[in-house]
């Protein structure tokens, strides 16, 4: 079997005496959709931050595509093929959707120490950006400011920008956060379409979405992974039932 795309090896992160990540190891296979669930305060966002590089672990290693990336910063990891979307919408609000998307395309098309040629005349970048806007269903909104569209659409744009980076793996931190039912449904549809050819690591509260999308599931409680496996395996795990699912099904 091929090596896992992402390996977390004995990650530890403590805040004061409290472990936010407790000796956590996890392998994500290439091509799978892996969801991480857990109650509030379980350390999900802390974990994502350590994978994305915005937070350094106290100890342990992050290995991506066979390379130890523990020492790389956010931008370097992004260029290595690890794209993230944020839990809180994070866009360049005074730019249009197209301009936002073009930044994502620009990020992976060579260096940006170019001072003279307007990006609006870089035809290839423009077309590529339009392609990704189309893919997330925002092509007809290309000229609007990112601040002028709905929350759901902003989240779609975020996913689109992550896609436009042509990453090897997508880290999605609660892509459905704060969405209405309809918006959520559209996002699930979008992510389901990505399943075909992308590796996704998903942190999400919406259980229906998780059960629909995920190939495998990990449950995080108090910074510790208490179970990893297929959905059924995890569902039947007694510790999980006690700690998490039971509680939310009660």
């Amino acid at each position: 079997m091929a090596d896992p795309l992402l390996q977390l090896q004995a990650l530890n992160k403590h805040y004061g005496g409290i472990p936010a990540t407790d000796n956590l190891s996890l392998d994500i296979e290439s091509g799978e959709v892996h969801a991480i669930i857990g109650p509030n305060g379980a350390g999900k966002t802390t974990l994502i931050a350590q994978i994305a590089g915005s937070l350094a672990p106290d100890s342990g290693r992050v290995v991506f595509a066979g390379e130890d990336i523990t020492q790389l910063d956010v931008a370097q990891r992004a260029r290595a093929g690890l794209a993230r979307s944020f839990q809180i919408t994070s866009l360049i609000l005074p730019m249009t959707l197209l301009e936002n998307m073009m930044l994502a395309v620009q990020a992976r098309s060579g260096h940006s120490f170019r001072f003279w040629k307007p990006v609006s005349r870089e035809q290839g970048m423009r077309e590529s950006a339009m392609h990704y806007l189309q893919q997330v269903g925002l092509a007809d909104r290309a000229g609007l400011l990112a601040s002028a569209i709905s929350h759901g659409e902003q989240r779609q744009l975020e996913v689109g920008m992550a896609l436009a980076m042509q990453p090897r793996m997508l880290l999605l931190d609660e892509p459905m956060a704060g969405m209405g039912k309809q918006e959520s449904a559209r996002m699930v549809e979008l992510l389901a379409a990505l399943k075909q050819d992308k590796t996704l690591l998903l942190v999400e509260h919406d259980m229906d979405a998780v059960f629909f999308l995920a190939d495998r599931l990990s449950v995080l409680v108090g910074g510790r992974l208490i179970a990893t496996g297929s959905i059924d395996e995890v569902r039947q795990n007694p510790e999980v039932q006690r700690a998490y699912l039971g509680e939310s099904h009660a």
Partner: peptide, 19 residues
């Protein structure tokens, strides 16, 4: 574009891969 983006949302620009 990179400068402008980083002025408004540095974390986002880094996440896109811009140092």
């Amino acid at each position: 574009r990179v400068l402008f983006g980083a002025m408004h949302n540095d974390a986002r620009m880094q996440a896109l891969g811009f140092s």
